[in-house]
Design a protein around this nucleic acid. Structure first.
Lengths: 344, 344
DNA sequence: CTCTCGAATACAAACGTTTGCATTCAATGT
DNA sequence: ACATTGAATGCAAACGTTTGTATTCGAGAG
C-alpha cells in the first residue's frame, strides 16, 4: 500500500521552469526563452515571466543546464606551488583567495589544483581537459613555448594564463612587467653600493625568469657592474632549495651582498641561509624581492620589494576567465601590470 | 542544405551507457546495474559489461548522475582566514593543500570558501546549503554551541568539522588535543624560567581557545605561577591585530617575556611587535606556538612549536567527508590527534 | 504438459534545461 | 477574400543516468 508522495512533495521542492510555466499557463520553452532575454518573446510576457519567477523563487538549476549544454560552471586553476613538505606558500594563498573572489557573484566556482613540477602541470592540464568537468582553466608559471597552453589551444578549451608565452597564437593573459620589477630591484641594490648582486630565481624555462634576467642585466649595465654568471642561482621552487643554494654562494671568497629574489618563499630561504653567517657579516646583506602579499611588513631584516597584489591578480584572472568562457574576444583579455616599489 | 552530423559525430563522442549497451545488445539499465555491482545482474554479464566498458573507454558521466540523483560530487570547505588585506596565511594554504589531496583519486572535487568573520561563516554555510551545489561541507573554527553546525544537522546536510563542539548531537570531526598543546607550550616557557607568560589567542568563543586556556592554566599551576588576566590577549585572527595588541602588552612595567601563540600568523605578529623593543630587551623574549606547517624552520628568533601537520589534517578531513557522504557512520569519523613538540 | 515462481533482463519515466522545428494567429499585401 | 508573411508560442527531443516496475525466460513442481 505504498503511496507515492505527490502534491505535498512537489510543493516543498524548489521552483523549476515547469512550475513557473504552469503558474502562467505558458509552455516551458517560452519561459526558458523569456528568462534568457530571447528576442522571440514579447516584452510583455517576459515581464510577466520575470515577475512570477521571482515570486516563486525560481533559480535556474545548473544541473539541468549542465546536462543540456555541457557547461559545468566550474573553473580549475592549475597552480605551481612549493613542495608540500615545506610550509604553505603565503603568496599562493593570496592568489587563491583572489581567484575565489574573482568568481564571487557569478554562477561559477573554482577548483584549485596545486602541482609541484612542470610534468605534473602538463599531466594535470591534460587530465582536467579530458574529463569535461571544467569550463575553463587558469595556468600560472608559463613557459615561452608552453606545452600546456599549446595543448589547450589545440583542444579549443578556454583558459587564461598568469604570465605571457611566446607562442604565435594569441590567448588571454595577465602578466606582471617582470623585467621592470627585476630592474628596479637590482637598481635599488646598485644604488646602495652593492657590487656583487646575486639573482635568485627559478630556472629560465619559465618566461618570467627570462624577463627578470633581462631587467637584472640592464640594471647591472647601467650601474657599470660586470655580469658574473656565478651570481646567478637557478633553483626550483621552494624555500629549502633556495636556502641550500644560497648557503653555497655565501663562501667567503667573492660573496654576494645584494640579493634579488623572486618571491616571499625564496626570500625566506635566502635570509635563513644568510643567518648562518656571523651577525656582523649577515648585517651587510641586503635583500630585495618581488612581492605579491604583504608578508615583508613582518620581516626582519627589512626587505624592500616590488609589489603587485596577488589578491588583485587572482581576482582579475578569474574574472577574465569567466569573460573568456562567456565569449569575450581574446584581445580584450590581455593585460600587463607594473609593480610598485616598496622601500623598507 | 544543412545536414545533421550523425554517425561521425557520435563516433568521436565519449562512450555512454547507451554505447556500451548497444555494443553488447543489452539494455541501458542492465549495463548501469552491472557497473554498480547490483546483485540482480549475473556475474557473467557483469564481467562482459566491465570488459566492453573498459574497451570503449566508458567513464560515468557525472552530469547525468548529478541530474538524476542530485549528487554533485563537489564538496565545500568554509574556512576562517585572516583578513585579506594582510599576507596569505601559510597554515591555511597547507590545510587547503591537504583538503585537495584528500579528495584526490575520488570523483569528488572541493571548493574552498575563505571567510573572515563568524557572521560571514554562518552566512556562507547557509548559502552553500541553500543552493544544492555541494554534497558536503568542511568547517573549521568551531564554537561550543556552533550555530552553523546546528543548522547543518537540522538540514541533514553532511559535514565534518575541524574542531569539536559541545553539542549533544554527534557529528564527524577531527580535532587536535589543544589543551595538551597549550600545556606543553606553556610548560616549556615555565621550564625556561619565564615568570610572566602571555597567552595570545583568538576569542574564547572558539572552542579550541577554551581548550587551550585550560592547558595554559594547568601548566601555570603546576609551575607555581599565578594566573594573571592581564597576560591574556583575546584577539581576532590576523597578524596586524596581534602586533598591535602585543605592542601594548610590552609596556615596561610587568612586561611578559614568554608568549604562547596559536599559529604562525599570530606568532609573526607577536614577534614583529617584540622587535619594536631595543635588541637586548627583545632577546629576552621567547615564543612558543602551535604549528601546522614548517614555517618556523625559517624563523628568527627560533620558535619552538607544537606541531600537527595541517597537510595531514586537511587530507584526513576531506577523506572523512567523502566517507560521511558515502554513508559511513559518524562514530567512525571522530578523531582527536596529539601534537608533537618541536624544540628550536 | 501446464502452471508457478524466481532470476535475469528490459522498459520507461524522471531529473531540469535548451533549442530546432512546428504550430498558431493576426496582420498585411494583392 | 485569400494567400503570404512574420511574430509569438508550443512541442518534443536530447543531454546521461538511476530505478520502480514490467517482461521474458527457463526450470522445477504438479
Amino acid at each position: 500500500m505504498a503511496h507515492k508522495p505527490r502534491e505535498p512533495a512537489r510543493a516543498s521542492r524548489p521552483a523549476t521552469l515547469k512550475t513557473v510555466a504552469e503558474a502562467l499557463g505558458l509552455s516551458i520553452s517560452t519561459v526558458s526563452r523569456a528568462l534568457q532575454d530571447d528576442a522571440s518573446v514579447t516584452a510583455r510576457t517576459r515581464a510577466k515571466v520575470m515577475e512570477v519567477a521571482e515570486k516563486l523563487g525560481y533559480r535556474r538549476d545548473l544541473r539541468g543546464v549542465n546536462l543540456r549544454t555541457g557547461k559545468t560552471f566550474t573553473l580549475c586553476a592549475v597552480l605551481v606551488a612549493p613542495p608540500s613538505q615545506e610550509f604553505g606558500d603565503p603568496a599562493a594563498m593570496h592568489l587563491i583567495q583572489g581567484l575565489i573572489t574573482g568568481v564571487e557573484g557569478t554562477d561559477f566556482k573554482i577548483v584549485i589544483r596545486p602541482i609541484e613540477t612542470a610534468e605534473q602541470r602538463f599531466e594535470a592540464v591534460k587530465e582536467v581537459a579530458a574529463n569535461n568537468r571544467f569550463d575553463g582553466l587558469v595556468l600560472d608559471h608559463t613557459e615561452p613555448q608552453d606545452a600546456a597552453v599549446l595543448y589547450l589551444l589545440e583542444k579549443n578549451i578556454k583558459f587564461v594564463t598568469f604570465g605571457r608565452t611566446e607562442l604565435f597564437s594569441e590567448h588571454p593573459y595577465l602578466d606582471i612587467d617582470n623585467e621592470d620589477a627585476a630592474f628596479v630591484a637590482t637598481k635599488h641594490l646598485v644604488d646602495h653600493g652593492h657590487e656583487r648582486i646575486a639573482m635568485i630565481d627559478p630556472p629560465a624555462n619559465y618566461l618570467f625568469c627570462r624577463q627578470r634576467m633581462r631587467g637584472y642585466r640592464r640594471a647591472l649595465e647601467e650601474g657599470g657592474l660586470p655580469f658574473d654568471k656565478s651570481l646567478i642561482a637557478e633553483i626550483g621552487i621552494g624555500a629549502r632549495r633556495v636556502r641550500e643554494r644560497v648557503a653555497q654562494m655565501l663562501q667567503p671568497k667573492a660573496r654576494p651582498t645584494g640579493f634579488v629574489t623572486s618571491n616571499e618563499v625564496a626570500t625566506l630561504g635566502a635570509i635563513s641561509a644568510g643567518r648562518m653567517l656571523p651577525p656582523e657579516e649577515f648585517s651587510k646583506l641586503q635583500f630585495v624581492s618581488r612581492d605579491g602579499t604583504n608578508l615583508f611588513d613582518y620581516f626582519e631584516p627589512p626587505v624592500s620589494s616590488c609589489y603587485y597584489s596577488l589578491l588583485d591578480a587572482g581576482e582579475f584572472l578569474a574574472g577574465s576567465l569567466v569573460k573568456a568562457v562567456e565569449g569575450t574576444p581574446i584581445s580584450a583579455l590581455q593585460t600587463i601590470e607594473r609593480v610598485t616599489f616598496i622601500e623598507r
